[in-house]
Write a protein that binds this DNA or RNA. Structure first.
Lengths: 111, 111
DNA sequence: CGTGTCGCTACAGTAAATGTAGCAACGAGA
DNA sequence: TCTCGTTGCTACATTTACTGTAGCGACACG
């Protein structure tokens, strides 16, 4: 019942379980979050460039997600625009295998 | 402009880029999707058990996600309930490092 | 000054998720 | 056979999340 995850906003579902993975799964399971981290993989982007990279997603939600990602410590705003922090790059590294998996998945027999 | 990802529903954002990772990122970036795969990691669950495991999420959305995951080939419905397919277990394997990362993340200095 | 970019926000409209209730189908007991 | 409990799944009204468009103040270039 106790909330053990320290610096996580109350609004992050799953944090109440005390299992960090739940909070992370919830954060990443929001629209555009995974995509943003993915698009920043090769370096910082300005907010506008990120918007372009994210298929013209609405600035409203991008701003919201960027704020969440900044609070989570995955993204930071520098002179070059938005970029992954060290932690953010670690996060990205964990789903690098996902890319290779996606390739295999796309070649599957389908539904 | 061409749609190259074979058995992906048109509604899957990012599929239009032709990059499978985008379709996958979109699918996984929907509420409860990551969580469902996570909860099924240790074996099949009945729909009700899954609902309990997912913090009493509404059956409506669970059913929707399960259908999507089945169409994607990650989940199947067996006599034991819902379980990961071979492909689903491969997918889960790719974000196993995420669990360890989450532990480190929860101990961060973060804002 | 005008023009263009930056990060960011307001707001109306639409899509998605929630919460509650309940369906038909199957099996186990009595 | 009649209830009881379970299964997977759906309807529907409410609430929340996201979209799309427009535009803000601040800064830089000319």
């Amino acid at each position: 019942m106790a909330k053990q995850v320290p610096a996580t906003k109350p609004g992050v579902r799953g944090s109440r379980t005390g299992r960090p993975i739940m909070a992370l799964l919830d954060l990443l399971g929001r629209r555009w979050t995974l995509r943003i981290v993915w698009e920043l993989r090769e370096g910082a982007l300005t907010s506008r460039a990120l918007r372009t990279a994210c298929d013209e997603a609405s600035p409203t939600i991008l701003q919201t997600r960027l704020t969440e990602l900044r609070e989570a410590g995955f993204v930071e705003l520098t002179d070059d625009g938005y970029g992954l922090t060290g932690l953010g790059r670690e996060l990205f590294a964990t789903f690098t295998p996902l890319s290779r998996f996606a390739e295999r998945w796309s070649k599957r027999g389908g539904s």
